[in-house]
Amino acid sequence: ETQAGIKEEIRRQEFLLNSLHRDLQGGIKDLSKEERLWEVQRILTALKRKLR
């Protein structure tokens, strides 16, 4: 995994995270989306740690 590859994956995950946040802010309670949001946040945290 290169730095560029990790950064690209971070961009993808952040896009997905923002999309999930928008969907959930629409007021629709969706447990699967909430679980996915937490999963994406965990992935992002792990990726950012790899960059250090």
Rank of each mutant, 00 (worst) to 15 (best):
Q13N: 10
L44G: 00
A4C: 04
E9I: 02
R11D: 03
E1Y: 09
L24H: 03
D23P: 01
L31K: 12
R36K: 12
L31Y: 09
V40W: 02
R52I: 15
N18M: 14
E39H: 05
S19F: 07
E35F: 11
I10T: 00
E35C: 08
Q25W: 07
I28C: 07
Q13T: 13
N18T: 08
H21A: 11
H21I: 15
I28L: 11
S19P: 00
K7I: 14
I6G: 00
E14G: 02
K48M: 06
F15M: 14
V40K: 01
L20F: 02
E35I: 13
E14K: 05
A46S: 05
L47F: 03
E1W: 12
E9C: 08
D23E: 13
E1K: 05
E14Y: 15
I6F: 02
E8W: 06
I6N: 01
D23W: 06
E35A: 11
N18S: 08
S32Y: 12
Q3W: 12
R49Q: 14
R12E: 04
E8V: 04
Q25M: 12
E8A: 14
S32A: 15
Q25Y: 07
I10P: 00
E1F: 11
I43Y: 10
E8D: 11
G5H: 14
H21G: 05
K48A: 03
K7N: 05
S19W: 08
L44E: 00
G5P: 03
R42F: 04
G27F: 05
Q41L: 15
L37I: 15
I43M: 08
K7G: 02
I10E: 01
L37F: 13
R22G: 06
I28Y: 05
R11H: 03
Q25E: 08
R12L: 14
D23C: 12
K48P: 00
D23V: 05
E39D: 05
L51S: 01
K48G: 02
I10H: 00
R12N: 07
Q25D: 08
K33Y: 10
E1D: 09
R22I: 08
Q13L: 15
H21C: 15
R49V: 10
K7F: 06
Q41S: 07
R42Q: 13
T2V: 09
R49H: 10
E1T: 09
L47N: 00
L31S: 12
A4P: 05
Q3N: 07
E8R: 10
H21E: 12
R12T: 03
K33F: 09
S19T: 10
L37R: 03
Q3K: 10
L31C: 09
K48V: 05
R11E: 06
L44V: 04
T45F: 09
Q41K: 14
R36C: 05
E39A: 07
S19H: 05
Q3A: 11
K29S: 07
G27S: 07
Q25T: 11
L51G: 00
R42E: 07
R42C: 07
Q25R: 10
A46Q: 09
S32H: 13
A46P: 00
T2N: 09
L47V: 01
K33H: 07
L51Q: 01
L24Y: 05
L16R: 02
I28D: 11
E39L: 04
R12S: 04
L44H: 00
E35H: 10
D23G: 05
W38V: 12
R11L: 08
I10D: 00
R12D: 02
I28T: 10
E8P: 00
K48H: 09
H21Y: 15
Q41T: 09
R12P: 01
E8M: 07
A46C: 11
L17S: 02
R36E: 08
Q13K: 05
R52L: 15
Q25G: 05
R11T: 06
R12F: 05
